[in-house]
Amino acid sequence: MDNVTWDLKADKAVKLIKEGKRVDDRALDQYRAIEIKKNISENAEGSALVKLGGTEVVVGVKMVLGEPYPDMPNEGTISVGAELLPLASPVFEFGPPRPESIELARVVDRAVRESKALDFKDLCIEEGEKVWIVFIDLYALNDDGNLFDACSIATLSSLLETRIPKLEDGEIIKDEYSGKLKLSRKPLLCTFSKIAGKIVVDPVLIEEKAHDARFSLATTEDNYMCAFQKGGSGSLTESEIDQCIDTAFKCAKQIRKQL
């Protein structure tokens, strides 16, 4: 349960947004500073640490040999998991994944999968027998709001660095790589909060506490949208969604320069 101070801070955030201002003096359509550190884990095939203002996440990619789905014998796949580590927030606990972390993982998954950035046929090693499964695991280290976008940036940064392990007689050779994973697009999520009838991008934690609705959408550099997710108990209008779409294309373009 949150205490009274949080409620008061949330009230303040709402009051500011009504005046077109934010708790950290940003414009309504402005991201916090983004810092990306790639390859933070040598054992991972790809990894990145991302700071989005006070929010901090790490993402690691592991390539694992597996069997294809029977209906897709010549395709590998991806699998995204999210851990809201107890070290990231006083309200996160160990235990089976909660709906919040499942939603986070599934939305990040959709952004990558539905953009078709990865050709799953490239991940096939032996049809019907052996394929690569790309495990992408998201770890929240510090939750100061908008874990969605922080994880999305870290996921794309990691995938861009991911090396494919070398195989010999169908077995992985340790510490040797046959090349890099091929990505044909760079999908990025942009998340918005609707507060007091206004739309703000990249909400900080206190804005998330105060919001009526949340809206995330993933865009690609070739002008496609590949995932939507509305959350929260509020509603959105068509023009609010249009505003989100335009801002998302604009912001994602800026973020891509930093990858």
Partner: peptide, 26 residues
């Protein structure tokens, strides 16, 4: 949606869509 005001209360999407296609789909 809430039909009386046409406010959107649930919205998800997956697949590649342009903005024009989205307007038409909505």
């Amino acid at each position: 949606i809430m039909p009386r005001t046409e406010e959107i209360v649930l919205l998800q999407m997956d697949g590649l869509l342009t903005k024009e296609e989205w307007k038409k789909a909505l």
